[in-house]
Design a protein around this nucleic acid. Structure first.
Lengths: 118, 118
DNA sequence: GATCTAGATAACAACTTAGCTATATGGCTA
DNA sequence: TAGCCATATAGCTAAGTTGTTATCTAGATC
């Protein structure tokens, strides 16, 4: 952001770092694949097969099931999950060789709140 | 979207066209430049110089002023505005050789509502 | 009609995104 | 320790984004 910043500038100018972070989160959700993942994770036990280890309600679903549902390669799914993790929208729990993912409802609520003021 | 679609599939699967449209709108706002434009257009008369023709409150601000505030080239600003227009988030009014832009509050409210359910 | 000017479009470069295959990593399990 | 399996990373390609400069277009005005 190289624009000049006057004293009377608006909220969007006030905190460039926070604006960039907001942009990152918006980019993370601006993808049908990732919106699907977020949707599925609302109800892991309905949307994914039974898991041997790990309570789906507690820890979420593992990468493997998301790969199957998305219909893309394992690395592609892995990267979509990383984008969501980096944006803070989901949380990863490694456990017994698998990694479980669940929604970060607090972060999601923050995004919703901020989008409400655009 | 090449995934199989079962009868019990969720909202995000229900209407792929609408999902793609939602994705397009999210991509449109996932840009600090375009968020700035939307912010400025909340109050055109405060954020832009006086205009000879066209009531800023009624028609919004013209491209020229947005170019100056953004600090990018005229074509770059023009394209950002086009992205917002294509997403339906702002409305363009050509008048006396200038084009005025204003927020489409209804469309913005729709986005906010849909983001609230991600 | 000729000219001027605002805005849109074209064409290009640099960067990012999203898919793939191949391979590395790292924790179970035997 | 050795091997296995899930996940992450590397390296590649194709496509999309964002900036630039140059040019086109269309109204307004003289």
């Amino acid at each position: 952001m190289t624009t000049s910043r006057r004293p009377g500038s608006l909220a969007i100018d006030a905190n460039p770092a926070s604006d960039k972070e907001f942009e990152r989160v918006l980019k993370a959700i601006a993808s049908t694949r990732r919106l699907q993942i977020l949707e599925w994770l609302k109800d892991p036990s309905s949307n994914f097969p039974e898991q041997i280890h790990g309570d789906p309600e507690l820890h979420g679903a593992c990468n493997q099931f998301i790969v199957e549902k998305l219909g893309v390669s394992q690395p592609a799914a892995s990267r979509h999950l990383k984008v969501l993790v980096d944006a803070g929208l989901i949380l990863a729990t490694p456990r017994k060789g698998w990694t479980y993912y669940r929604r970060n409802e607090r972060a999601i609520a923050d995004v919703v709140r901020r989008v409400a003021s655009i």
